[in-house]
Design a protein around this nucleic acid. Structure first.
Length: 425
RNA sequence: GGAGAGGUGGCCGAGUCGGCCGAAGGCGCUCGCCUGCUAAGCGGGUAUGGGCCUUAAAAGCCCAUCGAGGGUUCGAAUCCCUCCCUCUCCGCCA
Protein backbone atom coordinates (compact mmCIF):
# COMPACT_ATOMS: atom_id res chain seq x y z
CA UNK A 1 0.00 0.00 0.00
CA UNK A 2 0.99 3.57 -0.33
CA UNK A 3 2.52 5.43 2.58
CA UNK A 4 -0.18 7.22 4.55
CA UNK A 5 2.10 10.16 5.23
CA UNK A 6 3.01 10.38 1.58
CA UNK A 7 -0.61 10.38 0.47
CA UNK A 8 -1.42 12.92 3.14
CA UNK A 9 1.17 15.35 1.83
CA UNK A 10 0.96 14.59 -1.89
CA UNK A 11 -2.70 14.21 -2.76
CA UNK A 12 -2.23 15.68 -6.22
CA UNK A 13 0.84 13.66 -7.07
CA UNK A 14 -0.93 10.47 -5.96
CA UNK A 15 -3.96 11.34 -8.02
CA UNK A 16 -1.80 12.12 -11.05
CA UNK A 17 0.24 8.96 -10.65
CA UNK A 18 -2.79 6.73 -10.39
CA UNK A 19 -4.32 8.32 -13.49
CA UNK A 20 -1.65 6.54 -15.47
CA UNK A 21 -3.40 3.25 -14.75
CA UNK A 22 -6.41 4.37 -16.78
CA UNK A 23 -8.76 2.85 -14.23
CA UNK A 24 -11.42 4.34 -12.09
CA UNK A 25 -9.49 6.63 -9.87
CA UNK A 26 -9.59 6.33 -6.12
CA UNK A 27 -11.25 9.27 -4.47
CA UNK A 28 -8.39 11.20 -2.86
CA UNK A 29 -10.79 13.77 -1.47
CA UNK A 30 -12.46 10.97 0.46
CA UNK A 31 -9.09 10.04 1.88
CA UNK A 32 -8.40 13.63 2.90
CA UNK A 33 -11.77 13.82 4.63
CA UNK A 34 -11.18 10.58 6.56
CA UNK A 35 -7.69 11.59 7.49
CA UNK A 36 -8.77 14.93 8.87
CA UNK A 37 -11.53 13.35 10.89
CA UNK A 38 -9.15 10.74 12.22
CA UNK A 39 -6.62 13.28 13.43
CA UNK A 40 -9.29 15.42 15.08
CA UNK A 41 -10.55 12.37 16.97
CA UNK A 42 -7.06 11.34 17.99
CA UNK A 43 -6.41 14.77 19.43
CA UNK A 44 -9.59 14.81 21.44
CA UNK A 45 -9.28 11.25 22.70
CA UNK A 46 -5.61 11.53 23.59
CA UNK A 47 -6.21 14.78 25.46
CA UNK A 48 -8.82 13.07 27.59
CA UNK A 49 -6.62 10.04 28.12
CA UNK A 50 -3.82 12.26 29.36
CA UNK A 51 -6.21 13.82 31.83
CA UNK A 52 -7.47 10.46 32.96
CA UNK A 53 -3.96 9.14 33.45
CA UNK A 54 -3.12 12.13 35.60
CA UNK A 55 -6.30 11.66 37.57
CA UNK A 56 -5.58 8.00 38.15
CA UNK A 57 -2.16 8.85 39.49
CA UNK A 58 -3.89 11.31 41.80
CA UNK A 59 -6.25 8.58 42.99
CA UNK A 60 -3.29 6.36 43.79
CA UNK A 61 -1.70 9.17 45.79
CA UNK A 62 -4.85 9.91 47.73
CA UNK A 63 -5.37 6.26 48.52
CA UNK A 64 -1.82 5.85 49.69
CA UNK A 65 -2.33 8.81 51.96
CA UNK A 66 -5.49 7.17 53.25
CA UNK A 67 -7.75 9.89 51.87
CA UNK A 68 -11.05 9.66 50.09
CA UNK A 69 -10.90 9.64 46.29
CA UNK A 70 -14.45 8.70 45.41
CA UNK A 71 -15.36 12.10 43.93
CA UNK A 72 -12.39 12.06 41.60
CA UNK A 73 -13.03 8.45 40.69
CA UNK A 74 -16.60 9.22 39.70
CA UNK A 75 -15.44 12.07 37.49
CA UNK A 76 -12.85 9.89 35.88
CA UNK A 77 -15.38 7.18 35.31
CA UNK A 78 -17.50 9.59 33.36
CA UNK A 79 -14.50 10.70 31.36
CA UNK A 80 -13.93 7.05 30.59
CA UNK A 81 -17.34 6.81 28.97
CA UNK A 82 -16.57 9.68 26.67
CA UNK A 83 -13.21 8.18 25.80
CA UNK A 84 -14.91 4.92 24.91
CA UNK A 85 -17.22 6.76 22.55
CA UNK A 86 -14.38 8.59 20.87
CA UNK A 87 -12.34 5.42 20.50
CA UNK A 88 -15.28 3.68 18.87
CA UNK A 89 -15.70 6.53 16.40
CA UNK A 90 -12.00 6.50 15.73
CA UNK A 91 -12.00 2.78 15.04
CA UNK A 92 -14.65 3.24 12.37
CA UNK A 93 -12.72 6.03 10.66
CA UNK A 94 -9.46 4.13 10.86
CA UNK A 95 -11.00 1.08 9.30
CA UNK A 96 -12.33 3.14 6.41
CA UNK A 97 -9.03 4.87 5.92
CA UNK A 98 -6.91 1.74 5.95
CA UNK A 99 -9.45 0.08 3.70
CA UNK A 100 -9.03 2.96 1.31
CA UNK A 101 -5.26 2.53 1.38
CA UNK A 102 -5.44 -1.24 0.99
CA UNK A 103 -7.60 -0.94 -2.10
CA UNK A 104 -5.52 1.69 -3.86
CA UNK A 105 -3.02 0.24 -6.33
CA UNK A 106 0.65 1.09 -6.54
CA UNK A 107 1.70 4.20 -8.42
CA UNK A 108 3.41 3.27 -11.71
CA UNK A 109 7.13 3.90 -11.74
CA UNK A 110 8.28 6.80 -13.90
CA UNK A 111 9.84 4.34 -16.32
CA UNK A 112 6.55 2.51 -16.83
CA UNK A 113 5.31 3.42 -20.30
CA UNK A 114 2.15 5.43 -20.85
CA UNK A 115 -0.80 3.55 -22.26
CA UNK A 116 -4.15 2.09 -21.35
CA UNK A 117 -4.31 -1.34 -22.96
CA UNK A 118 -2.05 -4.24 -23.73
CA UNK A 119 -1.78 -3.09 -27.33
CA UNK A 120 0.28 -0.20 -26.06
CA UNK A 121 2.89 -2.34 -24.30
CA UNK A 122 6.18 -1.61 -26.04
CA UNK A 123 8.43 -4.48 -27.08
CA UNK A 124 11.76 -4.01 -25.32
CA UNK A 125 13.73 -6.77 -27.03
CA UNK A 126 13.35 -10.08 -28.77
CA UNK A 127 15.52 -13.15 -28.62
CA UNK A 128 15.87 -15.93 -31.15
CA UNK A 129 13.74 -16.54 -34.20
CA UNK A 130 10.48 -18.18 -35.00
CA UNK A 131 11.15 -21.74 -36.06
CA UNK A 132 10.53 -22.23 -39.76
CA UNK A 133 8.15 -25.10 -40.14
CA UNK A 134 7.37 -26.45 -43.58
CA UNK A 135 4.03 -27.80 -42.48
CA UNK A 136 0.95 -26.45 -40.72
CA UNK A 137 1.85 -26.40 -37.03
CA UNK A 138 -0.53 -27.90 -34.53
CA UNK A 139 -1.55 -26.50 -31.22
CA UNK A 140 -0.12 -28.10 -28.10
CA UNK A 141 -3.29 -29.87 -27.02
CA UNK A 142 -3.58 -31.63 -30.34
CA UNK A 143 0.03 -32.75 -30.10
CA UNK A 144 -0.22 -33.65 -26.45
CA UNK A 145 -3.41 -35.62 -26.84
CA UNK A 146 -2.25 -37.38 -29.98
CA UNK A 147 0.95 -38.42 -28.23
CA UNK A 148 -1.03 -39.75 -25.31
CA UNK A 149 0.32 -37.36 -22.69
CA UNK A 150 -2.40 -34.83 -22.04
CA UNK A 151 -5.89 -35.87 -21.02
CA UNK A 152 -8.42 -33.12 -20.52
CA UNK A 153 -11.49 -35.36 -20.62
CA UNK A 154 -10.48 -37.44 -17.65
CA UNK A 155 -9.57 -34.32 -15.72
CA UNK A 156 -13.06 -33.05 -16.42
CA UNK A 157 -14.44 -36.26 -15.04
CA UNK A 158 -12.58 -36.14 -11.75
CA UNK A 159 -12.65 -32.38 -11.28
CA UNK A 160 -14.02 -30.14 -13.99
CA UNK A 161 -13.00 -27.83 -16.77
CA UNK A 162 -9.64 -26.08 -16.80
CA UNK A 163 -7.84 -29.07 -15.36
CA UNK A 164 -5.59 -31.59 -17.04
CA UNK A 165 -4.15 -34.99 -16.29
CA UNK A 166 -0.67 -35.68 -17.59
CA UNK A 167 0.44 -39.21 -18.35
CA UNK A 168 3.83 -40.73 -18.96
CA UNK A 169 6.10 -38.48 -20.95
CA UNK A 170 3.99 -35.38 -20.22
CA UNK A 171 4.13 -35.90 -16.48
CA UNK A 172 7.86 -36.50 -16.75
CA UNK A 173 8.35 -33.48 -18.96
CA UNK A 174 6.55 -31.29 -16.46
CA UNK A 175 8.84 -32.57 -13.73
CA UNK A 176 11.91 -32.21 -15.95
CA UNK A 177 11.09 -28.62 -16.79
CA UNK A 178 10.56 -27.74 -13.16
CA UNK A 179 13.83 -29.34 -12.11
CA UNK A 180 15.65 -27.64 -14.96
CA UNK A 181 14.25 -24.25 -13.99
CA UNK A 182 15.15 -24.72 -10.34
CA UNK A 183 18.68 -25.64 -11.33
CA UNK A 184 18.94 -22.48 -13.42
CA UNK A 185 17.71 -20.43 -10.47
CA UNK A 186 20.20 -22.07 -8.16
CA UNK A 187 22.94 -21.21 -10.60
CA UNK A 188 21.83 -17.61 -10.42
CA UNK A 189 22.09 -17.59 -6.67
CA UNK A 190 18.51 -18.28 -5.60
CA UNK A 191 17.87 -20.32 -2.49
CA UNK A 192 15.22 -22.94 -3.07
CA UNK A 193 12.18 -22.74 -0.82
CA UNK A 194 9.31 -25.16 -0.46
CA UNK A 195 6.54 -23.14 1.20
CA UNK A 196 3.02 -24.03 2.24
CA UNK A 197 0.53 -23.96 -0.63
CA UNK A 198 -2.16 -22.73 1.70
CA UNK A 199 -1.84 -19.34 3.36
CA UNK A 200 -3.85 -17.17 5.68
CA UNK A 201 -5.60 -13.88 5.06
CA UNK A 202 -2.73 -11.84 6.36
CA UNK A 203 -0.30 -13.25 3.84
CA UNK A 204 -2.74 -12.64 1.00
CA UNK A 205 -3.13 -9.06 2.18
CA UNK A 206 0.62 -8.63 2.45
CA UNK A 207 1.23 -9.20 -1.23
CA UNK A 208 -1.94 -7.45 -2.39
CA UNK A 209 -4.31 -10.25 -3.47
CA UNK A 210 -6.63 -9.23 -0.66
CA UNK A 211 -8.82 -7.43 0.11
CA UNK A 212 -9.59 -6.50 -3.46
CA UNK A 213 -9.26 -9.70 -5.46
CA UNK A 214 -10.89 -12.33 -3.29
CA UNK A 215 -12.91 -13.63 -6.24
CA UNK A 216 -9.72 -14.73 -8.01
CA UNK A 217 -8.77 -17.02 -5.14
CA UNK A 218 -9.78 -20.45 -3.95
CA UNK A 219 -10.71 -20.27 -0.29
CA UNK A 220 -10.88 -23.20 2.09
CA UNK A 221 -14.44 -23.49 3.26
CA UNK A 222 -15.03 -22.48 6.84
CA UNK A 223 -11.51 -21.18 7.35
CA UNK A 224 -9.49 -18.07 6.67
CA UNK A 225 -7.17 -20.15 4.50
CA UNK A 226 -6.57 -19.73 0.79
CA UNK A 227 -4.85 -21.76 -1.92
CA UNK A 228 -1.90 -19.78 -3.22
CA UNK A 229 -2.33 -18.28 -6.71
CA UNK A 230 1.47 -17.99 -6.93
CA UNK A 231 4.48 -18.74 -4.74
CA UNK A 232 4.95 -14.99 -4.55
CA UNK A 233 2.48 -14.99 -1.68
CA UNK A 234 4.08 -17.43 0.78
CA UNK A 235 7.64 -16.59 -0.23
CA UNK A 236 7.35 -12.80 -0.04
CA UNK A 237 5.57 -13.12 3.28
CA UNK A 238 8.39 -15.28 4.60
CA UNK A 239 9.95 -12.14 6.01
CA UNK A 240 6.77 -10.37 7.03
CA UNK A 241 7.23 -8.29 10.19
CA UNK A 242 10.97 -8.86 10.10
CA UNK A 243 13.88 -6.48 9.98
CA UNK A 244 16.67 -7.83 7.80
CA UNK A 245 20.29 -6.76 7.99
CA UNK A 246 21.51 -4.70 5.10
CA UNK A 247 24.29 -7.24 4.62
CA UNK A 248 21.74 -9.96 3.90
CA UNK A 249 20.37 -8.07 0.91
CA UNK A 250 19.59 -8.92 -1.74
CA UNK A 251 17.79 -12.03 -0.55
CA UNK A 252 16.88 -14.26 -3.48
CA UNK A 253 14.51 -17.22 -3.28
CA UNK A 254 13.08 -19.57 -5.85
CA UNK A 255 10.18 -21.88 -5.28
CA UNK A 256 8.33 -24.50 -7.29
CA UNK A 257 4.71 -24.61 -6.29
CA UNK A 258 1.35 -25.38 -7.76
CA UNK A 259 -0.69 -22.22 -8.34
CA UNK A 260 -4.44 -22.14 -7.97
CA UNK A 261 -6.58 -19.55 -9.71
CA UNK A 262 -10.32 -19.38 -9.91
CA UNK A 263 -10.15 -17.63 -13.29
CA UNK A 264 -13.44 -15.98 -12.51
CA UNK A 265 -14.38 -13.72 -15.36
CA UNK A 266 -12.21 -15.45 -17.94
CA UNK A 267 -15.06 -17.44 -19.44
CA UNK A 268 -14.45 -18.20 -23.04
CA UNK A 269 -10.78 -17.24 -22.91
CA UNK A 270 -8.27 -19.97 -23.69
CA UNK A 271 -10.79 -22.66 -22.99
CA UNK A 272 -8.68 -25.30 -24.65
CA UNK A 273 -5.36 -26.63 -23.54
CA UNK A 274 -2.94 -25.77 -20.81
CA UNK A 275 -2.74 -22.02 -21.22
CA UNK A 276 -5.33 -21.10 -18.63
CA UNK A 277 -5.80 -23.71 -15.94
CA UNK A 278 -7.14 -23.60 -12.42
CA UNK A 279 -3.99 -25.38 -11.30
CA UNK A 280 -0.53 -25.15 -12.76
CA UNK A 281 3.07 -25.31 -11.66
CA UNK A 282 5.32 -22.33 -11.60
CA UNK A 283 8.87 -21.68 -10.51
CA UNK A 284 8.84 -18.29 -8.92
CA UNK A 285 11.82 -16.02 -8.32
CA UNK A 286 11.51 -13.62 -5.41
CA UNK A 287 13.97 -10.93 -4.42
CA UNK A 288 14.23 -8.59 -1.46
CA UNK A 289 16.33 -5.62 -2.44
CA UNK A 290 17.68 -2.32 -1.23
CA UNK A 291 15.56 0.55 -2.47
CA UNK A 292 18.46 2.10 -4.39
CA UNK A 293 19.12 -1.03 -6.39
CA UNK A 294 15.68 -2.45 -6.91
CA UNK A 295 15.25 -1.22 -10.47
CA UNK A 296 18.58 -2.80 -11.39
CA UNK A 297 17.39 -5.93 -9.60
CA UNK A 298 14.35 -6.02 -11.84
CA UNK A 299 16.59 -6.12 -14.91
CA UNK A 300 18.63 -8.86 -13.31
CA UNK A 301 15.56 -10.87 -12.36
CA UNK A 302 14.10 -10.56 -15.84
CA UNK A 303 17.41 -11.76 -17.23
CA UNK A 304 17.25 -14.82 -14.99
CA UNK A 305 13.82 -15.69 -16.33
CA UNK A 306 15.01 -15.16 -19.90
CA UNK A 307 17.94 -17.45 -19.33
CA UNK A 308 15.61 -20.42 -19.02
CA UNK A 309 14.06 -19.73 -22.42
CA UNK A 310 17.43 -19.12 -24.00
CA UNK A 311 18.75 -22.44 -22.82
CA UNK A 312 15.65 -24.11 -24.13
CA UNK A 313 16.17 -22.32 -27.43
CA UNK A 314 12.70 -20.83 -27.37
CA UNK A 315 12.07 -17.61 -29.24
CA UNK A 316 10.59 -14.87 -27.09
CA UNK A 317 10.16 -11.16 -26.66
CA UNK A 318 10.17 -8.93 -23.61
CA UNK A 319 7.55 -6.25 -23.28
CA UNK A 320 7.08 -3.54 -20.69
CA UNK A 321 3.58 -3.28 -19.33
CA UNK A 322 2.07 0.15 -19.75
CA UNK A 323 0.28 1.89 -16.91
CA UNK A 324 -3.12 0.57 -17.86
CA UNK A 325 -1.97 -3.06 -18.00
CA UNK A 326 0.03 -3.02 -14.80
CA UNK A 327 -0.89 -5.35 -11.93
CA UNK A 328 -2.35 -3.93 -8.73
CA UNK A 329 0.79 -4.07 -6.59
CA UNK A 330 3.40 -3.47 -9.25
CA UNK A 331 5.18 -0.25 -10.12
CA UNK A 332 6.99 -1.71 -13.10
CA UNK A 333 6.52 -5.00 -14.93
CA UNK A 334 8.19 -6.80 -17.80
CA UNK A 335 6.31 -9.66 -19.38
CA UNK A 336 8.18 -12.30 -21.28
CA UNK A 337 6.18 -13.70 -24.15
CA UNK A 338 7.20 -16.92 -25.82
CA UNK A 339 6.43 -17.70 -29.42
CA UNK A 340 3.85 -20.44 -29.94
CA UNK A 341 3.83 -21.62 -33.55
CA UNK A 342 0.62 -23.60 -33.12
CA UNK A 343 -1.25 -20.56 -31.92
CA UNK A 344 0.76 -18.25 -34.13
CA UNK A 345 1.08 -15.87 -31.20
CA UNK A 346 3.36 -14.68 -28.48
CA UNK A 347 2.02 -15.74 -25.11
CA UNK A 348 2.98 -14.61 -21.65
CA UNK A 349 5.22 -17.10 -19.93
CA UNK A 350 6.71 -14.88 -17.25
CA UNK A 351 5.88 -11.66 -15.54
CA UNK A 352 8.64 -9.85 -13.65
CA UNK A 353 7.75 -6.98 -11.37
CA UNK A 354 9.19 -4.48 -8.98
CA UNK A 355 6.72 -3.60 -6.25
CA UNK A 356 9.02 -1.05 -4.62
CA UNK A 357 7.90 -0.74 -0.99
CA UNK A 358 4.22 -1.39 -1.76
CA UNK A 359 4.19 -4.99 -0.54
CA UNK A 360 6.88 -4.40 2.05
CA UNK A 361 4.69 -1.81 3.73
CA UNK A 362 1.67 -4.12 3.73
CA UNK A 363 3.65 -7.07 5.01
CA UNK A 364 5.92 -4.92 7.18
CA UNK A 365 9.21 -6.13 5.75
CA UNK A 366 12.08 -3.85 6.64
CA UNK A 367 15.83 -3.71 6.69
CA UNK A 368 18.33 -1.78 8.70
CA UNK A 369 21.13 -0.08 6.90
CA UNK A 370 24.48 -0.41 8.60
CA UNK A 371 24.95 2.43 11.05
CA UNK A 372 21.41 3.64 10.49
CA UNK A 373 19.27 4.25 13.52
CA UNK A 374 15.95 3.38 11.97
CA UNK A 375 14.87 0.52 9.83
CA UNK A 376 13.14 1.19 6.54
CA UNK A 377 10.98 -0.74 4.14
CA UNK A 378 12.89 -2.72 1.57
CA UNK A 379 11.75 -3.38 -1.98
CA UNK A 380 10.24 -6.65 -3.13
CA UNK A 381 10.38 -8.11 -6.62
CA UNK A 382 9.30 -11.30 -8.21
CA UNK A 383 9.01 -13.00 -11.54
CA UNK A 384 8.08 -16.32 -12.98
CA UNK A 385 11.08 -18.31 -13.85
CA UNK A 386 8.97 -19.77 -15.49
CA UNK A 387 5.38 -20.92 -15.68
CA UNK A 388 5.97 -24.65 -16.10
CA UNK A 389 2.76 -25.59 -17.89
CA UNK A 390 3.11 -22.85 -20.45
CA UNK A 391 6.74 -23.79 -20.99
CA UNK A 392 5.60 -27.32 -21.73
CA UNK A 393 3.22 -25.82 -24.26
CA UNK A 394 6.08 -23.92 -25.85
CA UNK A 395 8.34 -26.96 -25.95
CA UNK A 396 5.63 -28.98 -27.67
CA UNK A 397 4.64 -26.37 -30.21
CA UNK A 398 8.18 -25.31 -31.05
CA UNK A 399 9.61 -28.80 -31.16
CA UNK A 400 6.89 -30.37 -33.28
CA UNK A 401 7.73 -32.25 -36.45
CA UNK A 402 5.68 -32.90 -39.52
CA UNK A 403 4.90 -36.44 -38.31
CA UNK A 404 3.45 -35.17 -35.03
CA UNK A 405 6.45 -36.08 -32.92
CA UNK A 406 8.24 -33.55 -30.75
CA UNK A 407 11.98 -32.98 -30.56
CA UNK A 408 13.09 -31.92 -27.09
CA UNK A 409 15.56 -29.10 -26.46
CA UNK A 410 19.07 -30.34 -25.74
CA UNK A 411 19.11 -28.72 -22.33
CA UNK A 412 16.15 -30.79 -21.24
CA UNK A 413 17.36 -34.21 -22.32
CA UNK A 414 19.52 -34.89 -19.26
CA UNK A 415 16.35 -34.39 -17.22
CA UNK A 416 14.50 -36.88 -19.43
CA UNK A 417 17.04 -39.69 -19.13
CA UNK A 418 18.48 -38.71 -22.49
CA UNK A 419 15.20 -38.82 -24.36
CA UNK A 420 15.46 -36.62 -27.47
CA UNK A 421 12.12 -37.08 -29.08
CA UNK A 422 8.57 -37.79 -28.07
CA UNK A 423 6.73 -39.93 -30.58
CA UNK A 424 3.86 -42.28 -30.95
CA UNK A 425 4.61 -45.73 -29.66
C1' G B 1 -8.14 -35.33 19.05
C1' G B 2 -6.88 -35.69 24.85
C1' A B 3 -3.73 -33.67 29.07
C1' G B 4 -0.34 -30.03 30.64
C1' A B 5 3.24 -25.72 30.25
C1' G B 6 4.21 -21.16 28.16
C1' G B 7 4.20 -16.48 24.98
C1' U B 8 7.52 -9.64 28.33
C1' G B 9 12.26 -4.81 24.67
C1' G B 10 17.77 -7.25 19.47
C1' C B 11 18.41 -11.77 22.78
C1' C B 12 18.00 -13.97 27.87
C1' G B 13 15.08 -12.96 31.94
C1' A B 14 12.38 -10.57 36.64
C1' G B 15 7.69 -8.63 37.46
C1' U B 16 5.26 -9.55 44.90
C1' C B 17 -1.90 -8.75 47.23
C1' G B 18 -3.74 -4.46 39.99
C1' G B 19 -1.10 1.89 41.25
C1' C B 20 5.61 6.48 39.11
C1' C B 21 6.52 -0.73 35.23
C1' G B 22 7.50 1.11 28.88
C1' A B 23 8.97 -2.36 32.20
C1' A B 24 14.59 -4.65 37.31
C1' G B 25 18.94 -7.47 36.06
C1' G B 26 22.11 -9.60 32.44
C1' C B 27 23.93 -10.17 27.39
C1' G B 28 24.52 -7.72 22.91
C1' C B 29 25.13 -3.11 20.41
C1' U B 30 26.82 1.98 20.66
C1' C B 31 29.21 6.66 22.36
C1' G B 32 32.90 8.82 25.71
C1' C B 33 37.02 8.10 29.06
C1' C B 34 41.02 5.06 30.09
C1' U B 35 44.75 1.78 28.11
C1' G B 36 51.50 0.28 23.40
C1' C B 37 47.35 -2.79 20.38
C1' U B 38 43.61 -6.15 21.92
C1' A B 39 41.17 -7.49 26.25
C1' A B 40 39.58 -5.71 30.83
C1' G B 41 37.73 -1.37 33.51
C1' C B 42 34.69 3.18 34.34
C1' G B 43 30.58 6.40 32.82
C1' G B 44 26.43 7.39 29.37
C1' G B 45 23.02 5.79 25.62
C1' U B 46 20.20 1.84 23.46
C1' A B 47 11.92 -0.43 21.31
C1' U B 48 8.06 0.85 17.87
C1' G B 49 3.94 3.57 16.04
C1' G B 50 0.98 7.95 16.54
C1' G B 51 -0.50 13.17 18.21
C1' C B 52 1.12 18.17 19.71
C1' C B 53 4.98 21.76 19.04
C1' U B 54 8.34 23.36 14.79
C1' U B 55 9.24 26.44 8.13
C1' A B 56 11.57 21.40 8.61
C1' A B 57 14.32 18.31 11.70
C1' A B 58 16.02 17.53 16.59
C1' A B 59 14.68 18.27 21.47
C1' G B 60 10.50 18.43 24.47
C1' C B 61 5.42 17.16 25.98
C1' C B 62 1.50 13.64 25.35
C1' C B 63 -1.08 8.85 23.70
C1' A B 64 -0.74 3.69 22.57
C1' U B 65 1.84 -0.95 22.57
C1' C B 66 4.40 -6.69 27.57
C1' G B 67 1.23 -12.91 21.40
C1' A B 68 -3.86 -10.73 19.15
C1' G B 69 -8.72 -8.95 20.28
C1' G B 70 -12.42 -7.88 23.88
C1' G B 71 -13.92 -7.10 29.23
C1' U B 72 -13.63 -5.53 34.60
C1' U B 73 -11.49 -0.97 37.01
C1' C B 74 -10.32 5.79 38.52
C1' G B 75 -6.06 2.73 37.00
C1' A B 76 -4.10 -3.82 33.90
C1' A B 77 2.23 -6.85 31.83
C1' U B 78 -0.43 -8.16 36.33
C1' C B 79 -7.69 -10.09 37.12
C1' C B 80 -11.67 -12.31 33.48
C1' C B 81 -13.21 -14.07 28.39
C1' U B 82 -12.17 -15.41 23.21
C1' C B 83 -8.64 -16.46 19.58
C1' C B 84 -3.59 -17.43 17.66
C1' C B 85 1.15 -19.53 18.22
C1' U B 86 5.15 -22.51 20.62
C1' C B 87 6.72 -26.62 23.67
C1' U B 88 6.02 -31.55 26.42
C1' C B 89 3.32 -36.18 27.03
C1' C B 90 -0.56 -39.46 25.03
C1' G B 91 -3.49 -40.85 20.76
C1' C B 92 -3.68 -40.94 15.39
C1' C B 93 -1.30 -40.70 10.83
C1' A B 94 2.30 -40.15 5.52
Amino acid sequence: MLDLKFVQKNLDAVSQGLKRRCKTEPDVAEFARLDEARIALIREAEGLKAERNQGSAEVAKLKRAGQDASGLMAALSQMGERIKELDAELAVIETSESDWLLKVPNIPHESTPEGCSEEENPVIRTWGKKPSLNFAPKEHWELGQALGGLDFERAGKITGSRFCVSFGWAAKLERALAAFMLDCAAENGYTEVLPPFIVNRQAMTGTGQLPKFAEDLFKIEGQEYYLIPTAEVPVTNLHAAEVLDEDELPVAYCALTPCFRSEAGSYGKDTKGLIRQHQFHKVELVRFARPETSMADLELLTGHAEMVLQRLGLHYRVIALCGGDLGFSSAKTYDIEVWLPGQGKYREISSCSNFLDFQARRANIRFKARGAKKSEYLHTLNGSGLAVGRTLVAVLENGQQADGSVVLPEALRPYMKGLAKIEMK
